[in-house]
Amino acid sequence: MKGRRAALAATAWALAGCAGIAGGGGPAAYALDPTHTSVTFEVAHFGTSTSRGRFERAQGSVQLDRAAGKGRAEITIATASVSTGVPVLDSRLRGPEALDSEAFPTATFVSERFVFTGDAVIAVAGSLTLRGRTLPLTLKATHFDCYLSPLLAHQVCGGDFEATLQRSRWGIDFGLSLGIPDEVRLLVQVEAIRQ
């Protein structure tokens, strides 16, 4: 039984592979896999340690044409889904001094310029709308790959992307006067399933 299931999975994988190859040229649409897409941020806490948090709800879509070296992505996160492991801090971050989640429930990153080396994405240039302000932001890839998911029987492309931003440029001044740094490092995990 176990063997048969494994054989079935292998066949599905192989078939997905054929489909992947058949549809290999030209642009393809991908839907974000919300279970493997998340935005983590890091902020230095005074001069000692690094505080981390994440946004738990992200959705969006990606168009990718690896042969032509083109792509487009749109990712929206729910600002109220911020999670640091410290509930009191999460409330402060959702408040008007920081993310102001009631007035600005979403933050959106839109990119129409993917930078490739060969068929691998190395950077994604676009703009981030956060707290009602839209400013340019480029995410650099630290990993990028496409694989055939044995569970989903579909091609999945994804990677890890990083950027550092000054939160005050988006109007988030919370704690600056107390010495909490302006600089925030974003670590974005993305996986997207070929449709």
Partner: peptide, 17 residues
Amino acid sequence: HSFVNFELLHFGTSTIR
């Protein structure tokens, strides 16, 4: 301000945190 964060690679592609 005391947490253990972990990271591991998913299908050699992206990092689960």
